[in-house]
């Protein structure tokens, strides 16, 4: 982590933090961001929380978008991308509000994006020094998704369920228009969709903190796994989505303020 501390991105970076009833943990995540990625703007998308998530985030200095309805992670994430697109950000980083992701890694995600011309950079828990231990069932599920994505799109990934990602300008515009909405399937499906639409997808090592937030049992896990697999298959059959046109001009970000 320390090796990236000196790296300061040469562009405007927005960190998108979708949060649903995260009042207890959001402050920690925002403090981490302030310490380890002070150069980034932070947007918290409050996904219709019933607690003080939005207020806490606002008082911590983040820009807060409050969704009047709970849309789920996919809908909240897309809101962040729409915001990033309209405000003309060059890079957007998906960051969980529950403290699982570490702000220190953001610099290396953005660096991969900027220096190696990637469109989507995924922070993988499975490359580099491993500090994250998957429960067996989730590991097996993750391997199956890796294989499916490999077969369906040709993309080689190691951690398709990682929600720690950075997106380029092009990727931001695409996700603002089309972002998968399937519950717990948005990460894997977004990868497959991005790969299928000619986006350069890369991975960098990302250490993560274990959170015991996953309350899904093995049986439900299997159910979600099957659902994601079907979604990937359907995604493969879908006609290519149109790439949204470039906004009118650089002034667009200003007029949309």
């Amino acid at each position: 982590m320390t090796e990236h501390k000196e790296y300061k991105p040469d562009c405007r970076v927005l960190v998108i933090v979708p949060a649903y009833n995260e009042a207890r943990r959001i402050a920690g995540a925002l403090a981490d961001l302030k310490t380890h990625a002070p150069w980034a703007d932070v947007l918290v998308v409050d996904d219709g929380s019933h607690d003080a998530t939005g207020d806490i985030a606002a008082s911590a200095g983040a820009v807060v978008l409050r969704l009047p309805l709970n849309l789920g992670v996919g809908g909240a994430m897309q809101t962040g991308y729409i915001y990033a697109d309209r405000m003309g950000y060059d890079a957007a980083v998906q960051f969980d509000g529950d403290g699982q992701h570490r702000a220190g890694v953001i610099a290396s995600l953005v660096r991969e994006l900027r220096e190696n011309g990637a469109d989507l950079v995924v922070g993988s828990r499975l490359i580099g020094r491993r500090s994250y231990r998957f429960p067996l069932a989730r590991y097996v599920g993750s391997r199956i998704l890796v294989l499916m994505i490999r077969i369906l799109t040709g993309l080689r990934t190691t951690d398709p369920t990682s929600g720690f990602r950075a997106a380029s300008r092009r990727m931001i515009r695409f996700f603002a228009a089309h972002y998968p909405q399937l519950y717990l399937g948005d990460t894997a499906e977004a990868l497959a969709t991005a790969a299928r639409h000619g986006m350069a997808v890369r991975e960098v090592p990302a250490r993560m903190t274990m959170t015991n937030s996953s309350s899904i049992g093995n049986l439900m896990g299997l159910f979600y796994m099957v659902r994601i697999a079907i979604a990937l298959l359907i995604d493969r059959l879908e006609r290519p989505l149109p790439m949204p046109p470039e906004p009118a001009g650089p002034a667009d970000a200003e007029s949309n303020k």
Binding site: V63, L65, R66, L67, Q78, T79, I82
Partner: peptide, 11 residues
Amino acid sequence: LTQELAMMKRQ
């Protein structure tokens, strides 16, 4: 609509 509404509330 929900996304647009959140955006407009912010503005």
